[in-house]
């Protein structure tokens, strides 16, 4: 069928075995050979086809692993906001890469600022297109992270699906009590927690 094949799949980068690709044109039907032109190494064709299906149905970006235990990961329809402490190395770093590749909004924190900067620039380079709805925020100490947490996880008055970057402030209009500014550690939530503990 003329015009149904996508032009190409653009390879965005390789993150620890996860190859992130993007369709040249959205909504077009992609065939496995299109991706075979771009990819390196061996993949399970069935897996690639699944990735294509997901892509053709509206997902713009897909990612799949290149390892022997390849499995398809795609940008989840409902990205979550994930706060990772100690993202400068080891498990934290691996987790940050993993969640970022899957399309979640990731907040990385840690003590070593240079490493965080490097990781952030790397992740932003990998996922440049989706950067707008994702935020890689870094802070170098717990004290500096606390206000961020209160903004990113506000107790009241926020819409669940939009809290990235500068949009993550408490939304007073949408809150149940419009006249009252929501505080980070709100008395309401704190009271609930205290009641639960006792």
């Amino acid at each position: 069928m003329r015009g149904r094949r996508a032009q190409a799949v653009e390879v965005r980068g390789l993150i620890d075995g996860l190859m992130v690709v993007r369709l040249a044109e959205r909504g077009r039907q992609v065939k496995p050979e299109d991706q075979q032109q771009q990819r390196k190494g061996t993949h399970d064709p069935q897996m690639c086809w699944l990735a294509c299906e997901l892509t053709a149905s509206g997902e713009q970006e897909v990612a799949w692993s290149t390892g022997p235990h390849a499995k398809v990961a795609f940008l989840c329809p409902m990205p979550k906001l994930i706060l990772i402490t100690g993202a400068t190395s080891g498990f934290g770093e691996a987790t940050a890469r993993r969640f970022a590749a899957e399309g979640h909004r990731v907040i990385i924190t840690g003590r070593r600022k240079e490493r965080l900067e490097a990781l952030r620039s790397e992740l932003e380079g990998m996922h440049g297109k989706v950067e707008a709805r994702r935020s890689f925020i870094l802070f170098t100490s717990t004290c500096a992270t606390m206000p961020l947490c209160k903004r990113s996880f506000p107790p009241t008055g926020m819409e669940r699906d939009r809290c990235a970057g500068e949009q993550c402030g408490p939304r007073r209009r949408a809150g149940p009590d419009p006249g009252r500014p929501s505080r980070g550690l709100g008395a309401h939530a704190g009271h609930q927690l205290k009641a639960c503990c006792t």
Binding site: P154, P155, M158, G184, H188, A189
Partner: peptide, 9 residues
């Protein structure tokens, strides 16, 4: 820092 928001949601 994060628990109050989680409780509310």
């Amino acid at each position: 820092a994060v628990i109050p928001g989680m409780i509310a949601r």
